[in-house]
Amino acid sequence: MVLQFQCEEMEQDSTRQQQLNRKSEDLIEQYRCQIQETKLKHRKHRMKFENQLQQLIEQHKNLHSVFSPDRLPAEIESVENAKSQLLKAGKKL
């Protein structure tokens, strides 16, 4: 009887342990899913940031080409020519 009782007790312990293991495995799977979801969100945010950064870089390149120091003397000369032409046209009126 003692052996039978011990055997039943061990079976119950084994069953409890299996249930605990299942719960732990379920929790682990849930955490894995949450981690994967978080990684995907971070990846999405990173890609969005990288796209915005690329756009800013392109805008900067475009602005730099328009307002580059190399073009400044030519722009000043062009503005001065336009100013003198306007002044001449104003005097003729």
Results as ranks from 00 to 15, higher is better:
Leu56Gly: 06
Lys92Arg: 11
Glu11Lys: 13
Phe5Leu: 13
Gln54Pro: 01
Lys92Tyr: 12
Glu80Tyr: 04
Glu37Met: 08
Arg71Glu: 03
Lys61Ile: 06
Thr15Trp: 15
Cys33Val: 08
Glu29Ile: 03
Arg16Leu: 12
Ile28Leu: 08
Gln52Leu: 07
Cys33Ala: 07
Glu37Ser: 12
Pro69Cys: 01
Glu25Arg: 15
Val79His: 11
Lys92Ser: 14
Arg43Glu: 10
Ser14Lys: 13
Glu8His: 09
Leu56Gln: 09
Cys7Pro: 00
Phe49Thr: 00
Gln52Val: 09
Lys23Tyr: 06
Asn62Thr: 08
Gln30Cys: 06
Ser78Tyr: 10
Ser78Cys: 10
Glu37Lys: 11
Asn21Tyr: 12
His42Tyr: 10
Asn51Cys: 11
Asn51Val: 12
Glu75Ile: 08
Leu63Trp: 00
Leu3Trp: 12
Ala74Gly: 07
Ile57Pro: 02
Leu87Ile: 07
Val66Gln: 02
Gln36Trp: 07
Pro73Gly: 00
Gln36Leu: 12
Leu3Pro: 12
Leu40Gly: 05
Lys91Asp: 14
Lys88Gly: 02
Gln36Pro: 11
Pro73Thr: 01
Pro73Met: 00
Ile76Gly: 00
Lys61Ala: 02
Gln52His: 10
Leu3Gly: 11
Arg46Gln: 11
Lys83Gln: 06
His64Ala: 01
Asp26Trp: 09
Glu29Leu: 13
Ile28Lys: 13
Leu86Ile: 04
Val79Lys: 13
Gln54Ala: 15
Ala74Lys: 06
Leu27Asn: 05
Arg71Val: 04
Glu11Val: 04
Gln6Tyr: 09
Ser68Phe: 01
Val2Phe: 15
Cys7Ile: 05
Arg22Lys: 14
Glu8Gly: 05
Ser65Thr: 05
Gln19Leu: 15
Ile35Glu: 02
Thr38Tyr: 02
Glu77Cys: 03
Arg43Phe: 08
Cys33Tyr: 09
Arg43Leu: 09
Asp26Phe: 10
Gln4Lys: 08
Asp26Asn: 10
Arg16Ser: 10
Ala74Ser: 12
Ser68Lys: 01
His64Thr: 04
Gln85Glu: 07
Lys23Leu: 06
Arg32Met: 06
Arg22Cys: 11
Asp70Val: 10
His45Ala: 10
Glu58Ile: 06
Leu20Lys: 11
Ser65Gly: 01
Gln34Glu: 08
Gln36Ile: 07
Lys92Asn: 08
Ser14Glu: 13
Asn51Gly: 09
Arg32Thr: 04
His64Cys: 00
Ser24Asp: 14
Asp70Ala: 12
Arg16Asn: 11
Thr15Asp: 15
Val2Cys: 12
Ile76Phe: 04
